[in-house]
Amino acid sequence: MTQSTASHRHLPNRLDNPFKSIVLSWESLLVLVAIGIFILNSMASPYFLNAWSLSDMTFNFTEKALIALAMALLIISGEIDLSVAAIIALASTLMGLALQYGADTPVLIAIGVGTGIACGAFNGFLVTGLKLPSIVVTIGTMSLFRGISFIILGDQSFKGYPASFSWFGQGYVWWVISFELVLFIGFAVVYWALLQRTNFGRRVYAIGSNETAALFSGVRVARTKFILFCLTGAMSGIAAVLLTARLGSTRPSIAEGWELEAITMVVLGGVSILGGAGSIIGVVLAAFIMGLVTFGLGLLNVPGIVMSIFIGALLIVVIALPILWSMWRQRA
């Protein structure tokens, strides 16, 4: 994102970045917030502390969190993808279309994930190949991808997915542990290892901290970013499979507004929107927190739109507090 890389230029010194000094304690702060919300929830509603309730809760966030994992890497590298929800819509629509021609479960999944990868590659090509700012490109592809869904579906919907397909969104692996949750935890481990334990992950951080320096140290910046866009597309495709299987139908308005929720998870998880800093553990914690907040408020019959106030306030407060704290300390 040119816009973000630019806005930290007027900071006197990157080392003084308040984001960086708090990153060590960020995860612990999130754990405290999560525990606090958990306790509040169990006091507020007698229905909360129940294995099945908690299992239901995970469905609130697993699909978005899967996208957030890849989005975290993309934002750390200094780019952003606003088209993820539109990719879900297009992938879901194409799966529905294939279903009309009698495709069975494996083909449907291949189409869903394949569409995601193709859309991600298209974004990646526009950003890295044509050197365009990702925020504008993905605003454009966001309209384009969802627009294609609208062209195909209009005001209709696709229904009648086979039971073997629905299992991916509704099935349980063991007792209350859903397939979605297992998949999310699996991917979280994979992304954690990728970011924290491989050369590829180091390159992602390097690009985000200083793209020019990374380029001069021999990092293939364009190729790395292209891969990250494809990964984000692939995760959106997987989320499309899960969501379509869970809902059992496809409308062009599916997953509307999810891009903002996924980005909120990433930023809440401590990833700097300016790039160069952040961790997968933080993002996973943020996903659980958002799930806990929405589910707890849901048990209290708070409407979804009001919940969004809490999410928005949480985002701003959690980011503002450490900054206010460091400003206060400097003054004292």
């Binding site: 806005s7 980005i263 909120t264 739109i305 999410i311 985002l315 980011i319």
Partner: peptide
């Protein structure tokens, strides 16, 4: 104010206030 005084990136600030303002309409 949030952008000026706290130096939070504009995209984060307005992402937050977008959901807050929209929610307040409902409230």
């Amino acid at each position: 104010l949030l952008v000026w005084k706290l130096n939070i990136p504009a995209i984060v600030v307005t992402l937050g206030t977008l959901t807050i303002y929209r929610g307040l309409v409902f409230v």
